[in-house]
Amino acid sequence: MPPQFTTPPPLEPGSRIAVVAPSRPIDESRRNRACQRLRETFGLEPVIFETARRDWEWLRDNSRARAEDIVDAFEDPSIDGVIAVTGGDDQIRVLKHLDPERLTANPTRFYGFSDNDNLRLFLWNHGIVSYGATLHPTLILDPEIHPYTERYLRRAFFDDALGVVEPAPEWTDRWFDFDTGEPREWYENPGRTWHGDERVSGTLWGGCFSIVKWHLQTDRYLPTPDELDGAILALETSEDVPLPREVGYTLRSMGERGLLQRFDGLVMGRPQTYSPELEWEPPADYGEQLREAVLSVLSEYNPEATAVFDVEFGHADPSVPLPLGAKATLDPTAEEIHVE
């Protein structure tokens, strides 16, 4: 069975929220832009911790200090929440320096995704629910924060649960041009795709596909197989845009390890298919290919699982800060996702 989870107390208007950099930093102007939105849109007071003021070279060479900043923020009695400035590609190096006893003694709402899913999976192992949002990109893109993102981020800040995760009316994976500030191109939401007909409930585990893959490879921070019994696997593929077959290979390996069979359900985020640094051009039907690759593996190792694809979480926008460790219910008949 999964561990017993604590959902840290919600924030309130006027709460102080620590700004930390467990992964990479962002420049001061973007940090200030995001902090301004925390104040003006949500009524929160950001507190800039040491790592959020440092450059990448310093952060790269001081993984222990990054861990200490996280723990210090959790232990600070004046702090009600902790938010990461952005993602990155090395946070797994930070985990060995964390003191789980200090974190569990001071459960605090943590917000982060992408590389920060390393920390979120660590918190999952110790029974602390955490949320998928960062300063950049969640709070900083577009001339105004998207109403859908704002609605669910507000719930993640101030409510005990996200409730029903409704489909967004539109979506995009285009890059925002900070130099011009021009609005991005948005597309009509084609809807979600459901597989299976059983209503299932379970604890959310997973996050960014790349990070889950690292944890499978290192095998240092995985739950025991029994702890995943009845859980809901949540995956999103980030701006890495992995080949669909690579996602299938990883899920197949989970099946061979006896892990994939443990989950009662699967939630796949709508894939991002554009990045200026991408070394290949994804096909127009990338999402369909990804879904087919995933369903092919599920049909062999976990055919009874209920799955839903193109959900609003991850790197495409708008996004829901899906909380790892929270209980989710997938209802294919009502085509509804509910997160407690």
Rank of each mutant, 00 (worst) to 15 (best):
E277S: 08
P143I: 05
P190V: 08
S29A: 14
T104V: 15
G230C: 03
L260F: 13
R33T: 11
A18H: 05
L260C: 09
L44Y: 14
P3I: 09
G230I: 04
Y249H: 13
L235A: 00
P3L: 03
G14Q: 05
T218S: 14
P25W: 01
A34S: 13
D55E: 14
F49H: 05
E188Y: 10
E188F: 07
P137L: 09
D142Q: 09
T306E: 07
P107H: 09
Y131K: 06
P167T: 08
W124Y: 13
G181T: 10
A293T: 01
V129C: 03
T193F: 08
I48F: 02
P9S: 15
H315R: 13
D89T: 04
R199I: 03
R102K: 14
I211Q: 00
E300N: 01
T203V: 15
E340Y: 07
D142T: 00
N302E: 11
T333G: 12
G181W: 05
L103F: 06
V339K: 01
E246Y: 10
E336V: 11
P223Y: 00
G87N: 11
P137C: 02
D76N: 14
E340H: 11
L153S: 00
V94W: 04
I232W: 01
E281L: 15
G163C: 01
V297F: 01
E312D: 13
G132I: 07
G269D: 10
D69I: 01
E279D: 15
P137D: 12
R39N: 03
M268E: 08
D142C: 06
G81D: 03
E50W: 04
G127F: 05
W214V: 06
G255V: 12
T149K: 12
P9K: 14
F113L: 10
G43V: 08
P22T: 15
A307W: 00
L38S: 01
F309V: 13
S253T: 08
E277W: 14
F158P: 06
D90P: 01
Y221L: 09
L95E: 01
Y221Q: 02
D240Q: 10
E312Q: 14
